[in-house]
Structures are given as C-alpha cells and as structure tokens.
Design a protein around this nucleic acid. Structure first.
Lengths: 334, 334
DNA sequence: GTGAAAGCGCTAACAG
DNA sequence: CTGTTAGCGCTTTCAC
C-alpha cells in the first residue's frame, strides 16, 4: 500500500507538503503541487480513509435507516439517497430497522448507536416509527435528517403536506361524482396517518358529503391490511359497495386490488380505488392506480441536500422543514 | 469520548491490559479482567472503530453491489444480507452500480475501487453485469462472493442451477398440456440467461414439442421488455396465441401481465404465464404467477455465510460454488 | 500476568 | 511556502 510517506519521498518533499498539496492547494507553490500530483499519479496513491478518519473525525459515511427495504416504498428512497451521496463521495450504510437482526426489540436505537460508534457523518431516518429517536439523536450528537413528518420540528426534516395531499384526493373523488367513499387509513398512532385522515375527511365534509364512519377501516399501511380491507368491504358492504375507496398507502391499495380481484370485484367498474403516495412500481400494476403524493426520490434528494448543508457547514440555524410539493396523478383506477 | 486510556486509568492498569482484557481474555488474570470490565461499564467505553481499523486493517464493513435496488428482485437480497451481516456486527454499504452517479460509464469498477479504498472487509456482488469484475476483485485483493452465475468459477459464488430450474418449468408447462409456448428470454450476452433458455428448450424438446423460434423473444429482464413482448405476442400471434408464455424474469412477467391487461388479453384464460424467480412482491400481483426459482433471501444468506467463512478464516481453499435448490410454485397464472 | 513503547497513516499547529 | 513535530485511539511485540 502506498502511503503519503512514499509520495513525499518520490516528490522529494515532506509529508506535510503532500498533505497540503492535496488538501489545501493554495498553501503550496504551483510547481511543488505539480510534482506532488505527479508522484501521486505514478504511485497510484490513495489516502487511507481510516487514518484520515482517525485524524479528522469524519468518515464520509452516512447511515440510512428504513423500516424494511422490501416495502416497495423504500427502494426509491434508498436509491435516490445512495446516488446523491455517491455523487459527492459519501457512502451509504443501510439499516433495516424493522427487521429483527438478533438484537432484541429495540434494535432501531441499537443501530443508531452502532452508527454513531462508527462515527458516521450523518444519519437519514426514513422510518416513521423512529421519529421518537430525535432526542437520542441529539444526545448522541449526530446530525440527521428525517424523511416524513416530525411533529415537533426538533430536527431537520423533509416531507409532504399530508393534510393537503389527502384533501386534494378527497376533492378529486368528489369531483368525479363519488359520494359514498370508503377510507382505509393508516395506524392512528402515526401523526401523519392522522393528518391524511383529517385532510381527506375535511375535503369530503367541505363538499357536503361527510365521511360515513362505517366506511372507515384502520389498516397498517402494509398490503395484508389491504386484503383485510377488501374482505371487510365485501362482507360488510357487499350488497351496496361504496363507489370508491381511498387507501392511505400504496401497499394497502395493492392489497386491496389483489383481494378484490380474488373476490371478483372489478376495479374501477364495481368500485374505484385511489391511493396515497406515488411509486414507480405502481406503473406496472393493473389497473393503474390514481394517486396523490410525491415521488419518493424527491424526498431522498431533498434529504441529502439538507444533510449536506449541515455537514458542509452551509447551514447552522435551527431545525428546518422542507415541504415537497405533491401531485395528483389521475389514472384508470379512479 | 472515553478512550482506552481513561479506562486503564480508572481500572488502575495499563492500556495494554485493557486491550488484552477486551480482546484476549486469557492473557489476563480474572480479577483484573473483572476490574477492567467494570471500568468499561461505568465509563460506557466503546473502542473507536477508526483506530481499530487503522491498526488492524479490518473495518467490519461489507460492500454490497446491486444493479438497482428499485428492481424488486434486489430488496429481498439486500434485506437478507444486511440482516445476516448485522447479526454479527458487520455493516452493509450499498451501491447501485447500474445507476449513473456522476461517475461516468464505468462506475461499477469505480465503486469497487471506492469500496476497496474504504478497506471494506469483503464484497458481495449481486449484479450479473459485474461478473467480469472478478479479475479486478482479485487484483484488488478483496475477498468477495458473487450471487448468480459465475462462468469460470474464479471466485466464491452462490446461485441456482438455471438450466435445471428452467428445464423444470418447461416440463411443468408440458405436463399442463401446453405445446405452443412463447419464451421471453433474457439478454443472450448473460450466460445465465442462455442457461435458462437452454434448459427450457431442452425440456420442450425432450417432450417432443421443440420450441418454435418464431415464439422466442429476447428481452432485457426488465418490465418494459415485458410490455414489448406482450405487444409482439398480440401483434404477431394475435390470431392464434400460444397457449402459454414463459418469462425468464419476474419483472418481464409483470410487464407482460400489465400489457396483456391493457390489450384485453386475459391471463390465464387466453394465455398462461409463468416466470423465472420467486419474489415475495409477486404475492400481491394478480393473477398470481406460477414461478420457478428460489427465494432471493436464501441466496443472500448463503452469500453471507460463504463470505464469513473466508473472513473468519474458516475456509481457505479454492473458490467454491454453492447451489441453492429451486422450487416450482404452481399458482393461478399457469 | 502485566506494562512500556512503537507505530498503523494521516492532518494540523507551529516554526522557520 | 515548506518542514518538524505531535498526536488521533488502538493493538501488539517485546521485555520484565
């Protein structure tokens, strides 16, 4: 392994000069710099990152926490983040916080500590269940960005205005003539699930068609609860289905679609289906889902930008929140 | 930050002793060990991994290369690998090698070098396009495991017997009474795509129903070529569709399904569809696809086991190949 | 069984 | 503008 010493020797200068030439070009004369660079080139020298880290405390690694990469919402986030970080030479450590990894129940916090121990430069948390960790994050002195809602604004975060987006969808379904609309919500312990619910219900109420509580089903955001919701729809309301259903997550919408298919209910002929969030995966699902939300990649890129602002000292103020615009995508399902 | 020095001071011993107590329990008397552990506990001491790495050359980091995490084949691999590595304290650096990250065309090799530079302990490559990198890997002195085929057996690898699995599917379709079967293959420059093709064709030939070349369509493994294949089917063979089609990847099968839906061709009524590989994502697609293959997670776990065998010195022999058994899953699409 | 001392490769005061 | 020097925190000979 070529070390800085070898380079110095070859260039006929001291290690310091090599270091300067590489890190503070201006502190060194052009000719010397040239010589050093040439030696670096010839020797194929690459600084040892461990040594750099030990010295500087920086690792050029960012930890990324997602609940479960197999939930198709997250790959787009992970990809956009890894790519954006990779472009500036940062590496991405991925943790699936929701998947028991032989570390007991509380592995989210464990992973966080593990990341800290590793001296990652920053953390991006794309897991709603982890919003409570902001205090721990702060304690550990980690700079981090949350993706999604963060009630108390205790740290930097990026997200969509859940209330407005769901409101928009409510509006849309009303425009389309729907009055009896089922609503498959997320778990009410998530504040962003409550926001979506509130926004959607407000839209219906504003249109004079307030939601019928018997048409509300609380799901888990995951596809099995889409199945459950479909069964519930057919069993409880089979003799007179609502004309539309809004699922607060794409996975629940997919589950809904699948189970309705199995129960011979046709979409959108027998019932229209709309979903919150917009996944490119959905482009291959039939019928194509009408959705409201933003592309997850936009969240990822924004999160990286915010994190870099902190890491590179461009921004030092109090926690910020960036709101990403949403879009309603009308397709064939509703 | 508590360092080893503080611990030594508190325990009233030297740094060396602390290090020994922590890393070579037997080189230290029980009482001293006890004292050291107590001090460690009280101070919440955690060794600095950068310092450890600088000294030992190990980082406890493994790099994982996938073409594109948004291809739903990979999340299961990534999850299983990250989980398996996490269980033994190894962290996972994820790279999407197929996605331009501002690093020109050849970023796969770039990423590899970047990983090496980072002194990762090992690399897992789950990208068929990267099999050619085995030489580079060896040059860089990296221990690595490939997931998927690796023609020349130059490095450790795990995979499925593509020929046999595809053969099995051919057999199955024949058993089901199909004789005119379309075949959407992968790109022929991938040897494993050729193996699948050969296996499938052999099965048909063995059954006395050799494949009709006009029913073969070479795709890209991705969903758009499933669309293309559907269009081709309808346009070229619309007046007398084959009774079944076998797609050499799940994504192509999904694309096929989607486009057939758009063109009002019903599966399996009008044509049966079968796919290579088994994704849990497919559980939510309707109609449910009949598949042959192994769960990607099995590959991930096996890869981690192989890598650890090398890393932990349990195995030092020549490159090994582990073949994971496949399974045919009969469902409603074929 | 325990400790002193060297050094992994690098950066940054501080002198010159 | 360039070099000397001192560590960053840890592990590991090598003495004792």
């Amino acid at each position: 392994m070529t070390t800085i010493g070898k380079v110095a020797q070859r260039a006929g200068v001291s290690q310091t000069t090599v270091s300067h030439a590489l890190n503070h070009a201006d502190r060194v004369s052009p000719e010397i710099r040239e010589r050093v660079l040439k030696a670096v080139e010839e020797l194929g020298y690459r600084p040892n990152p461990q040594a750099q880290s030990l010295r500087t405390g920086k690792t050029n690694i960012v930890a990324l926490m997602v609940p479960d990469i197999c939930n198709p919402y997250y790959p787009e986030i992970v990809l956009s983040i890894q790519t954006a970080l990779g472009e500036v030479g940062l590496d991405t450590l991925v943790y699936n916080t929701d998947v028991p990894g032989g570390r007991g129940a509380n592995h989210a916090a464990d992973y966080l500590r593990q990341a800290r121990r590793k001296r990652v430069d920053g953390v991006i948390i794309a897991d709603a269940a982890l919003f409570g960790l902001h205090a721990e994050l702060k304690d550990l002195g980690l700079t981090g960005v949350f993706i999604g809602g963060l009630d108390n604004g205790a740290m930097d975060s990026v997200g969509v205005d859940n209330f407005q987006a769901a409101y928009r969808m409510g509006q849309y379904l009303i425009e389309k003539g729907h009055r009896r609309i089922a609503h498959v919500t997320g778990p009410s312990h998530f504040s962003f699930a409550r926001e979506r619910k509130a926004g959607f219900e407000k839209a219906l109420a504003d249109a004079g068609a307030p939601v019928d509580p018997s048409l509300v089903f609380e799901g888990s955001f995951l596809s099995p609860s889409g199945h459950d919701a479909a069964n519930w729809l057919v069993e409880k309301h089979g003799n007179s289905l609502p004309t539309a259903a809004f699922a607060a997550s794409p996975l629940m919408a997919i589950g809904l679609l699948a189970q309705l298919y199995d129960r011979k209910v046709q979409v959108p002929r027998d019932i229209s289906i709309a979903a919150y969030d917009r996944l490119s995966l959905l482009d291959d699902i039939r019928p194509r889902l009408t959705t409201v939300g933003c592309a997850p990649a936009a969240l990822g890129r924004a999160a990286v930008a915010m994190l870099r602002d902190r890491l590179e000292g461009r921004f030092k103020g109090p926690p910020r929140r960036e709101v990403i615009p949403f879009e309603l995508l009308e397709r064939e399902s509703a």
